[in-house]
Amino acid sequence: MFFHIVLERNMQLHPRHFGRDLRDKLVSKLMKDVEGTCSGRHGFIVAITGIESVGKGLIRDGTGFVTFPVKYQCVVFRPFKGEILEAVVSMVNKMGFFAEAGPVQIFVSNHLIPDDMEFQSGDVPNYTTSDGSVKIQKDSEVRLKIIGTRVDATEIFCIGTIKDDFLGVISDPGATS
């Protein structure tokens, strides 16, 4: 699920950036530092949408670095148990398959794949129904439901299922190409 929230961060800025475009430098550094990171508490920080305020800088003794407390608005993405996501399959193996929904990696074990889909090893490992109409392989898009999350301080990992109504392959890239 996506959220638009305000976060705060202390930015350290090198003295060489002190000048006319100090503020721009600060923001670009913030974006470089923060976007794409993951905190267990808020989830993945997808994008910074604006700066709320920049506090007074504090010069560090000895180094000359200045610390600015910066409040910024950002979009975060945090997966929840029970959430339905659309994801792209990144790897298929005997134990199940891995899929990615943006920054989140999701593992679907073979027990949570419908019983009528069998693993086919070979050049392109895939899960296929007995009549071959549905095939899950690398780069397939699947809709899945998250049934478990592991949230570490800097990482979120999910397990999902496609063994439910309206879950499974959305479109097969092999069919279009």
Partner: peptide, 29 residues
């Protein structure tokens, strides 16, 4: 249900949430 995995050699148990650490480069197991 969160799938559980067990190592037949050393008896260590994992569950599906450990999956990314467990997947190896050489084969699909």
């Amino acid at each position: 249900t969160v799938q559980e995995y067990i190592c037949p050699n050393c008896g260590k148990r994992y569950n599906a949430l450990d999956a990314p650490q467990l997947v190896s480069m050489e084969d699909e197991y």
